[in-house]
Computed example of a mutant assay.
Amino acid sequence: MARKQLPHYTVPTLTPEDGATVAAILQDRLNSLTDLHLTLKHIHWNVVGPHFIAVHLMLDPQVDAVRAQADEVAERIATLGVSPVGTPGALVASRSWDDYSLGRAGAIEHLGALDRVYEGVISGHRKAAADTEELDTVTNDLLVGHLHDLELFQWFVRAHLESAGGELSTEGTSTEQDSAGAAEQGAKKAASR
Rank of each mutant, 00 (worst) to 15 (best):
A2L: 08
K4S: 04
Y9L: 07
Y9R: 12
P12K: 14
P12F: 12
L14T: 00
T15S: 15
T15E: 12
D18I: 01
G19A: 12
T21H: 11
A23K: 05
L26N: 01
L30S: 07
S32Q: 03
T39H: 03
T39Q: 10
L40N: 07
I43N: 10
V47D: 04
V48T: 14
F52E: 05
A54T: 09
L57M: 13
M58R: 13
D64T: 14
A68H: 10
A68N: 11
A70V: 07
A70T: 09
D71V: 10
E72I: 02
E75H: 08
I77L: 03
L80H: 00
G81Q: 12
V82D: 00
P88A: 15
A93Q: 11
S94G: 15
D98H: 11
Y100S: 15
Y100C: 14
S101M: 07
S101F: 04
G103Y: 01
L111R: 02
L111C: 02
L111S: 00
R116G: 06
G120N: 11
K127H: 04
A129I: 00
D131M: 03
E133I: 07
L135N: 10
L135K: 13
D136N: 12
D141H: 15
L142N: 03
L142G: 01
G145Q: 09
L147Y: 10
H148R: 13
H148N: 09
D149G: 10
D149S: 15
E151D: 11
E151M: 10
L152Q: 11
F153M: 11
Q154N: 06
R158L: 05
R158Q: 11
H160V: 03
S163D: 09
G165V: 04
G166A: 05
L168K: 03
S169P: 00
T170N: 08
E176I: 02
Q177K: 15
S179P: 00
A182K: 08
A182W: 04
A182S: 10
A183G: 08
A183Q: 06
E184I: 01
G186T: 14
G186M: 11
A190D: 06
R193N: 14
